[in-house]
Amino acid sequence: MMKRLTPWLWVGPSALPLLLLSAVPIALLGYISLTSFEIGYTWSDREFVGLDNYRRLLSGREVEFWPAVRLSLIVTVVSVVAKTLLGLGVATLLSKKLRFSYVATTLIILPMAVNPAIAGLMWKLMLSYDFGIVNAAAEGAFGVKIVWLGQSYALFSVLLVLVWMHFPLSALMILAGFRNIAPEPLEAARLDGCSDRQVFWLIVVPQLRPVILSSSIFQAILAFQAFGPIFTLTDGGPGNATTILPLYVYKTAFTLGSVGLAAAAAVILVLIITALSGLMVATGRKGQPT
């Protein structure tokens, strides 16, 4: 009997708190999404409203919900493509063992070290219309100034900051993939007269495919839940121009106070991220050598 219990005594101290900290809150989140709970009221004041919150969201009666989902999709797709291409390029350069590549790696992973909320503020300063360094450079070079955080360019600015924050991760993941590439086919192809470009796209990239795929899905998960940098950069604005799903959840819960409604949106967010994670596990299994 004691022997059967031993493993649980070891795993329990981790498993139990995690159960309390993830399964219980997720269940509670599901429950909150079925109530009318609002900030400023006590928990016992809530009313059970069934699927009303979901109906309000999905029917479009909450006019800001579907645009937030659409923006989330745009931000995810565009930023993942940009992060992956940039990451692939940087990883390729770093894999060539150039001189100073150690220094370069250190500089390139710097964005990962910066607090996301502070990163958003730093970019806000750099992109400021009147005294931002970006506009100072643009004015010097092209004689134009752009309202980076205005209606038309705010989304672009958010994408820029997200790419800046997360492309180093893609670069590191893909760089790790470079170590598993067999050098022989590359040399053989070169002897057969392939150009560098052909070697890269026809031999190197196909071998990197699994790691590119898993880093892309991981980046999609990050992009879908991006909150800190956007909170400080634009706060979802101007208007709702950069209100992606996590910002919508925050505004609904903590600005409007409708926690029940926000919880329903959060459940939808959790479902999307769970699906993406499942996809990642599935492709990860497929990518492993058998």
Binding site: V24, P25, I26, F227, P246, A266, V270, S277
Partner: peptide, 25 residues
């Protein structure tokens, strides 16, 4: 058990913060 432990990491903080807020309250 292993899957349960590892998968708790995937939940987005902006979603978990709502029940945590209610529990904290």
């Amino acid at each position: 058990v292993v899957f349960g432990i590892l998968s708790s990491r995937i939940f987005p903080s902006i979603a978990l913060v709502l029940p945590f807020y209610v529990l904290g309250l």
